[in-house]
Lab assay of single mutants.
Amino acid sequence: KELVLALYDYQEKSPREVTMKKGDILTLLNSTNKDWWKVEVNGRQGAVPAAYVKKL
């Protein structure tokens, strides 16, 4: 499985998103959308802005 690093804090704004903190390591589930990537963090799945994460 592919991992990404959170470059910034992000507070979810809808139920389809997830909150992450700078430095979090997230499991990347889907990166086909260039703006929003689906990730899993702390057992929750949701979208985060692609510009806020970097593939490891």
Rank of each mutant, 00 (worst) to 15 (best):
K1G: 11
E2K: 10
E2Q: 14
E2T: 14
E2F: 13
E2M: 14
L3N: 05
L3A: 06
V4R: 00
L5G: 02
L7P: 00
Y8A: 11
D9H: 06
Y10E: 00
Y10M: 01
Q11S: 11
E12I: 07
E12H: 09
E12G: 15
K13C: 12
K13H: 09
K13P: 05
S14K: 07
P15H: 10
P15A: 12
P15Y: 10
P15D: 13
R16V: 11
R16L: 14
E17W: 05
V18W: 09
V18S: 01
V18Y: 05
T19L: 04
T19W: 05
K21C: 11
K22N: 03
K22Y: 04
K22M: 08
K22S: 07
G23V: 00
G23T: 02
I25A: 02
I25Q: 04
L26E: 00
L26N: 00
T27K: 11
L28E: 00
L29N: 02
L29D: 00
L29K: 05
L29A: 03
N30A: 11
S31C: 13
T32A: 12
T32N: 13
T32H: 11
N33Q: 10
N33E: 11
N33D: 14
N33R: 10
N33F: 07
N33H: 12
K34V: 11
K34G: 10
K34I: 10
W37R: 00
W37D: 00
W37V: 08
W37C: 05
V39S: 01
V39H: 01
V39T: 00
E40N: 04
V41E: 02
V41N: 13
N42M: 09
G43S: 06
G43K: 04
Q45M: 11
Q45G: 07
Q45A: 12
G46F: 13
G46H: 04
A47E: 15
A47H: 15
A47V: 15
V48H: 00
V48D: 02
V48L: 02
P49I: 04
P49L: 05
P49A: 02
A50H: 02
A50N: 03
A50E: 03
A51D: 10
A51R: 14
Y52F: 13
Y52N: 05
V53F: 06
K55N: 06
K55V: 13
L56E: 03
L56M: 10
